[in-house]
Nucleic acid binder design. Sequence first.
DNA 1: TTAACATGTAATTCAAGTAGTTACAAGTCG
DNA 2: CGACTTGTAACTACTTGAATTACATGTTAA
Lengths: 152, 152
Amino acid sequence: MSISTRFSVGIHILSLLELNKESVNTSDYMAKSVNTNPALIRKITGMLKMAGLVNVRPGIAGATLAKGLSDMTLLDVYHAVNVTSDKELFGIHENPNPACPVGRNIQSSLEPIFSVAELALEKALGAVTIEDVVKEIIEKDKRSNSRKDSAI
Amino acid sequence: MSISTRFSVGIHILSLLELNKESVNTSDYMAKSVNTNPALIRKITGMLKMAGLVNVRPGIAGATLAKGLSDMTLLDVYHAVNVTSDKELFGIHENPNPACPVGRNIQSSLEPIFSVAELALEKALGAVTIEDVVKEIIEKDKRSNSRKDSAI
DNA sequence: TTAACATGTAATTCAAGTAGTTACAAGTCG
DNA sequence: CGACTTGTAACTACTTGAATTACATGTTAA
């Protein structure tokens, strides 16, 4: 199965907080941008808060960025929204037959290999900051706007 | 959610085919080693067959390796058992608000980033062959056996 | 040819995770 | 006080994974 869209929604939220920082970003407003419901936004925002990425307090409208954009990588978001802390990316079948040489060694043989692969993934995510994403969004928006203008 | 255990089971099957190549590896036998049921083994074996990794034919007992162990990487197995062909590893929320700069650019901004991360993962998996896994299993088994002997 | 056995596959069930939705308690502020 | 917001819990619908059962199809040997 795919990695939860909580990850991309988390990135969406952080990007939105930057690009819309002049206004108050309530869960209701952000839900409209993501196109989901406010409760889910609040849930994910809560996860981002736990990770120290956003400031948000009960009763006070709006969330704000808690750190500089260049200090937040996608890996931070990945860890914030994924419950991968207790669950590995790769699932390994449990209870293989201990009477079989393969069965009794497959798990311990695969774990370090899977770890290396997972770390490669995380390294790639850690190399991209939210600032990079925001810049990309701005660039893409400029390009599509200029295309639209020239078409008129 | 985690990547399906079909992946680790697929590796288990291929390793077993090598280490038990003197015997006939029926789905029933392999199911006992993996500790699951024969139908699931046949399903995964069928996927491995589609990928050209094993030979198996209706009515004829047992599966065999279709290629050399050093010519099979974990990435081959990953692609064989994962239906990732039509589904990306990272899920991106659909239908974000096109009226919002973030909403209308988030998907196209994230896709290439996620692709890079996914490729990093696949590169790591492609660097490990089934031969490596089999050697590791043999090594681990030797070590645990010698420990047992010395304990007597 | 037939009986025994193996693979291929469909259907069913159960469990778990995702995401959408509603509802409401708790907190804040004019 | 009253309007608004966040934090959560509960519920539903949906999807996927995995286990299980059943049976059609194919093969082999007696």
